[in-house]
């Protein structure tokens, strides 16, 4: 029999574990955006070796499952002498992976900005870095907003994989509650609905931001 009582009893604990899900997603997204912008700059650079590195990076992080990346970071970092808490390794990896996807998003939206703008900015004497930071990036962020929001939603879902390195976010917490109560159906469905709620809020916030944002 489906037991709502189980869900009600365990919901507060489950919900409080959502803060790790949110923490990992938000930090991962910021890291991904910053690093993604750098990689995107590399991909559009005039130097061949920079373009090669950027292409290799994107191909690797998009070609290898995140679960494997997470385990690799978790097991590899100590081997090369870096001992970081699991949470740091998780955020780092999720961000590295997001950077690959976001750099492609940014590259796509940069292509949509008329070439004349960068040329005009250069003509009035802006330094290349200023052109990048003040003219191109803000517009790319606005054009790419729907895809970036999409990526953030994917990140929230991807954060469920960090259970493998032992961080107690929603999925891990629901695993332990399910094991303790023997009610996996109810608990996992409750977890699913928390994720769904988070993602619906993000999607709605994205739509509002899209309307409001004027660059």
């Amino acid at each position: 029999m489906f037991s709502f009582q189980t869900i009600l009893d365990n919901f507060p604990v489950l919900l409080s574990s959502a803060r790790y899900t949110l923490l990992i997603s938000v930090l991962g997204c910021f890291e991904g955006l910053v690093l993604g912008a750098v990689i995107c700059a590399g991909a559009l650079s005039s130097k061949l070796w920079l373009r090669r590195i950027a292409a290799l990076y994107v191909s690797f992080f998009r070609g290898v499952p995140l679960l494997i990346q997470l385990l690799a970071a978790y097991y590899l970092l100590p081997v090369i002498g870096i001992n970081v808490p699991a949470l740091v390794a998780a955020v780092l990896t999720v961000g590295l992976c997001a950077a690959a996807y976001l750099s492609e998003v940014l590259r796509g939206s940069l292509n949509a900005i008329p070439k004349g703008q960068a040329e005009a900015a250069a003509a009035i004497g802006m330094a290349p870095r200023d052109v990048w930071v003040r003219i191109l990036l803000p517009q790319a962020l606005k054009i790419g907003l729907p895809a970036i929001v999409n990526e953030l939603i994917l990140l929230v879902k991807a954060s469920s994989l960090v259970t493998v390195v032992g961080i107690v976010e929603i999925t891990r917490m629901s695993q332990s509650i399910a094991a303790a109560t023997y009610r996996p159906l109810e608990i996992y469905l409750a977890a699913a609905f928390i994720y769904l709620a988070i993602n619906l809020v993000i999607a709605q916030a994205g739509r509002v931001l899209e309307r409001r944002l004027t660059v």
Partner: peptide, 23 residues
């Protein structure tokens, strides 16, 4: 579509595999 796209694949698998027997 919204439910499947809004929840992690891992959680869906758990619901199916561990929760399925209950129904």
């Amino acid at each position: 579509v919204e439910f499947i796209r809004g929840t992690p694949f891992l959680v869906q698998l758990f619901v199916l595999y561990y929760g399925g027997p209950l129904i």
